[in-house]
Amino acid sequence: MTPLPITFERLRKTYGDYTALDDVSLRIEPGEFLTLLGPSGSGKTTLLMALAGFIRPEAGTIMIGERDVTRLPPNKRDIGIVFQNYALFPHMSVRANVEYPLKLRGVREAEARKRAMAALERVKLGAFAERDIAALSGGQRQRVALARAIVYEPRVMLMDEPLSALDKNLREHMQFEIRRLHDDLGITTIYVTHDQREALTMSDRIAVMEAGRIRQIDTPQEIYHRPRTAFVAEFMGEANILPAEAAGAASQGQLVIRAEHLHLGEVDGETDAVVLSGHVAALAFRGENWLVQLALASGQEVMLSIPSSRAEGCENLRAGDAITAHAARQHVHHLLEAGTDA
């Protein structure tokens, strides 16, 4: 099965005065795992539903391969979809749920059963084929939804926050399972989430969305370490945004320093580093790390994340104590102007 590219060209969707998609253009490469990431109301689900055919944009074009699907109904788009609530039929068995899309397409019963069982084996649920949906755990239901989405061998897979209902440990396990399934099938996958760690773990590229626009699209490493705007920097984790002059930089504009890149104490003379001094405003122990809030003389507060493995002395700090922190200049990144698009 050959994966297909997907192209959005100047897509626009409004609801009254609210603009859900604002001139969005994007190309997803064949076989790529791309995540649409952003807060609620950023447009990520609207973009996914437009691709699925459940929402029709007022302007723009959607291409799957060489085919314009902008006005095609959902069942003509050759797309597998996994929804947040799984959308399984509780009155059917596991196997019957997976067979259902094949029967809609007129596949004969024997062939439908064969393909359904193959899909269930792929998600490690072959032994559960005759179980009732109500008898399954959340993780097992999620696997049934995956099997149903892949059973008719679509060349594009859409996933709308499929792990949000699972507990933390199971969610992290399923992230690897979904990525493995994507790699095994060789299909193009578009995944929607508001969870930054999920996006970083699973994606080839991440498109960070805000207010109906893509603010940055890049690899997980680039998005995290070299954000282009203050919004992307702060959305992707503990980011300290500082005026360049506050960090002793000769340039203008803003700098971003990740909380985990700041170290307590003076810097040795051989290290090229940004040095920040002030007093402890607050601190908290979180098990794997200590969070230390450093108040600068300017009044700005900077967050440090100190791993417990090198946090000697943190337990002795108190609010008001004078401290110095530093970050190697290689971990200090200049931002473009806030709001600049990708």
Rank of each mutant, 00 (worst) to 15 (best):
A52H: 01
S137W: 00
A52C: 08
A282F: 09
A297Y: 04
G320M: 02
P154C: 09
I257E: 09
L294V: 05
I133V: 11
L185D: 01
L166R: 03
S308C: 13
I150P: 01
I323E: 07
R108C: 12
G53V: 05
I190L: 03
E301Y: 08
A338S: 15
L11A: 05
A282Y: 10
M157Y: 09
S42E: 07
E109H: 12
V98S: 02
L336Y: 13
H182F: 12
A199E: 00
A239S: 13
R77Y: 00
H182K: 07
F8P: 04
G313L: 09
A211S: 13
I150H: 05
A147E: 10
Y224A: 04
I223A: 03
G38M: 00
V332P: 09
H333N: 09
P73W: 02
Q196S: 14
P39E: 12
Q330W: 07
Q84N: 12
T219G: 01
W290P: 00
N85S: 15
D68C: 03
L335E: 09
G248N: 08
G299F: 08
A281E: 14
A273R: 05
A50D: 06
L34H: 11
L200M: 13
M209V: 03
T70H: 11
T61Q: 15
V98D: 03
E9G: 02
P5T: 00
E301C: 14
R155K: 10
I217H: 05
G186F: 01
G339D: 12
V24R: 00
T7E: 15
V292H: 09
R215S: 11
I323N: 00
H194Q: 14
T45Y: 04
L125Y: 01
F231A: 04
M157G: 03
A327I: 06
R171P: 03
R310D: 11
V256P: 04
E245P: 10
A311W: 10
R67V: 14
E99R: 13
T188E: 00
A295G: 11
I62K: 03
I217E: 04
R122A: 12
E337W: 02
E260M: 12
D22K: 15
